[in-house]
Amino acid sequence: MKALVAGGAVALVLLVALPAVLSSYQLSLLTKMLIFGIFAMSLDLLLGYAGLPSLGHAAYFGVAAYTVGLLALRVANNFWIDFPAGLLMAAGMSALFGLFALRTRGSYFLMITLALGQVLWGIAFGWRSLTGGDDGLPSVPRPRLPLPWSLTDGVPFYYFVLFFFALAVGALAVIASSPFGRALVGIRESERRMEVLGYDVWRYKYVAFILAGLFAGLAGTLFVYFNGFVSPSYLNIVFSASALLMVILGGAGTLLGPALGAAVIVGLENFISGYMERWVLVLGVIYVLVTLFAPSGLVGLARQRMRSSGS
């Protein structure tokens, strides 16, 4: 535990210091990694802790992004209204979808989360007058805050995102180590045992589902500010599945593993897309390789390595 805290502190210092040495392009890539890291960690709360494999997690990311984008463009670019509205919509949507999804388990849960996610994708795609359809919402402005720096610049915006990233890591760490988080792990291991012990399993899963949606919404709001643009592709199954991949690649059930997985995927996409057009093909191969050779993720592999060298 001490090693973990020390490692976290080192990572935080590094993340704070990095803008001094990175180019503005590299910094924007790092910003994206942090945002997708929040997204992956939010899914890990469901998958890694509660054992619920959602294939529709993009829904909450996308709903928050669209909410903020629409409010900022059509109503007012007011951070204190738009930002909470984005979070609220994400949490509300997961509260609604959770009612359906949590009636099921296993493969049914995968399919239903997928199908529910596609409902939102269908609306974003079809309801052109509201969402712009396939073209999405362009030119979403960055928030204006009473700060000495403008968030339209890369460095202040990076720190703005880093602040929320640290906040999310802290909040998820507290949740994971709380009695609530322990109960989720218990449910993952044996739902029946927890029921016998008197836990209201459904309620625990439902709260976890909403919390995961809320943090995915945080990632979505930050993303639309970062990217200035949102389209239906941030609601669809490919994006949802990539979140699952990030979690598994990093290590499900570890707090920071999924953020690492997100950084690897975002980095690889950027690197490979620069050399060839076939990123999707490579991504498909990564899915297969990770499933076959790294089912417990990079964190799992590192632990094995440490254990075998330690003994």
Binding site: L47, P53, L55, G106, S107, L110, V238, A241, L244, L245, I248, R278, V280, L281, L283, G284, V285, I286, Y287, V288, V290, T291, L292, P295
Partner: peptide
Amino acid sequence: FLRRFPEQELPQALLTFGFLLIFADLSLW
């Protein structure tokens, strides 16, 4: 591939989704 993961829905989903992407991009190519 799939035979290695009996009754494990998550690895099955990831594996088959990987194949979905591979076939999609190969077909486009």
